[in-house]
Design a protein around this nucleic acid. Structure first.
Length: 453
DNA sequence: TTAGCCTTGAGT
DNA sequence: ACTCAAGGCTAA
């Protein structure tokens, strides 16, 4: 029934081994250094798994010093790890003063950075695993938030937060393991709009969290409960780490890449992975049965991708931002022929963008509300989904009341709900178009998740 | 700049 | 509770 989704993605198997986590940072220790696409030029350098796993005698593959474990996909010592982190992403690499074959050992490793770095790549170290700016910021924000939460009692005074670090990610046993979403750079796209899956072409700026509510008049503004504040912040971080961000994307996003609609559908796979990563971070999602999770995911996927595309629409130029430049809507119209659909889509994006003013907190909440769609097909327990959705709708309302005052939040809130309900129609229009696409040309995952089989 | 130690989040 | 693998910090 849902073989592709749950076996390949929800169970985290079958993903391209060349993909690496871009923000999970957690390298599975069973991951082999003998990757198919490893940069290793000499297989003798790459030590077998058996050797690597031995408790003692771990040797840095770069310099031979004592190693503690894997660093950026190879067993190395602390110093080579730090060296790689400092140097692998530099564009102007130092040149070797000799024959590009300097001996690298504990004593000589600092003599020639060029050969040391070359050696790092040879043994399989991956620069893709060094967190980029966005990921580092998200990580730091998460750390800061947890630190703050550990120290600070709630504003109400009577509620002591004893929240697990990052509860939305840590609560409940995951029934959806990681999908190894690294390597997302290759060919992102969307159903009919490339930006449904692209990250922002600008460096992601993490939001400044809400100013101290204590400085506001509590008669005019809601003071969020500590757990509400925590949940909003966590959803926002989760959102920025997945749907709201992008990492190391080296796309092939030239206009000619969008010559047909089925290519666009296939290119949406990465966006779907990001969506899966996002929902996995929501404890209430993880608490649902596997069947409900899959059904829930399938019923929200189109709407969620459409919603995400709001981030990438450039209303001024009527174009879609991609990391490699802009693609005008006109190009997409020409490529797909779905003019009305594009008009509806761009109008929706422009409207929502204006409404939310790019507030990541609001977007995170709206995305979450969209995920729990009680109207979806084949849902085992609609009432549960509806109840969960209600909780997030209430959270959105409270958040707005804490941000724009009780007075202004009424209209604001109903306008946002209106946009959420409009999504349904837009999603259905897209779904109709998808049915016209020749399913033979669509990748299995997308067939599965978009119900095109 | 290097390299060692520390903190942290995530997975088991 | 423990391990792993990220990034941060800082003395040398």
């Amino acid at each position: 029934m849902c073989s592709t989704i749950d076996s390949s993605f929800l169970r985290g198997q079958g993903s391209d081994p060349s993909e690496f986590p871009t923000s999970g940072h957690q390298m599975n220790s069973s991951y082999s250094t003998q990757n198919e696409d490893s940069n290793s030029s000499s297989s003798d350098i790459v030590v077998s798994k058996k050797f690597k796993r031995s408790k003692e005698d771990k040797i840095c593959l770069v310099c031979g010093d004592k190693a503690l474990g894997y660093n950026f996909n190879a067993i190395t010592c602390e110093s080579c790890k730090a060296f790689f982190r400092r140097n692998a992403l530099k564009s102007d690499q130092p040149k070797c003063l000799f024959q590009n074959d300097c001996l690298i050992d504990v004593r000589t490793r600092r003599f020639c950075p060029h050969c040391r770095l070359r050696r790092c790549f040879e043994v399989g170290m991956k620069k893709e695993m060094i967190l980029d700016e966005t990921e580092r910021k998200a990580r730091m924000q998460k750390v800061a938030m947890n630190r703050q939460m550990k120290q600070k009692p709630s504003p109400g005074g009577d509620i002591v937060i004893k929240q697990e670090p990052c509860s939305i990610a840590s609560e409940a046993t995951s029934s959806i393991p990681d999908t190894q979403t690294g390597g997302e750079g290759q060919g992102q796209g969307s159903v009919v709009c490339p930006s449904m899956s692209f990250g922002n072409s600008q460096p992601l700026v993490l939001p400044t969290l809400t100013p101290e509510t204590s400085s506001r008049d509590p008669k005019m503004y809601r003071v969020l409960k500590a757990e509400e504040r925590l949940l909003v912040d966590e959803l926002t971080v989760a959102y920025l780490e997945t749907l709201g961000g992008y990492a190391n994307e080296t796309h092939v996003n030239r206009e000619e890449s969008y010559s047909s609609a089925d290519e666009l559908v296939n290119n949406s796979e990465i966006a779907v992975r990001r969506l899966i990563k996002f929902v996995k971070k929501i404890a209430l999602f993880r608490g649902m049965s596997q069947e409900n999770q899959v059904a829930c995911l399938k019923s929200c996927v189109l709407n969620a991708l459409l919603l995400r595309s709001v981030n990438f629409y450039d209303a001024e130029n009527d174009a879609w931002k991609t990391p490699t430049g802009s693609i005008p809507t006109s190009v997409l119209k020409r490529a797909t022929g779905f003019n009305d659909l594009h008009d509806a889509h761009t109008s929706y994006c422009a409207g929502l963008k204006k409404l939310t003013r790019d507030d990541s907190h609001i977007m995170a909440l709206v995305q979450t509300i969209t995920v729990f769609n009680p109207d979806g097909q084949n849902l085992e327990n609609r009432q549960t989904i509806s109840d969960i959705q209600d909780q997030f709708i209430q959270l959105l309302r409270h958040y707005l009341e804490s941000e724009v005052s009780f007075q202004h939040s009424q209209v604001f809130f109903s306008n946002i709900l209106q946009k959420i309900s409009e999504l349904k129609g837009l999603g259905e229009d897209h779904a109709r178009i998808l049915l016209q696409i020749n399913s033979n040309k669509i990748e299995p995952l997308m067939l599965e998740i978009l119900n095109l089989q």
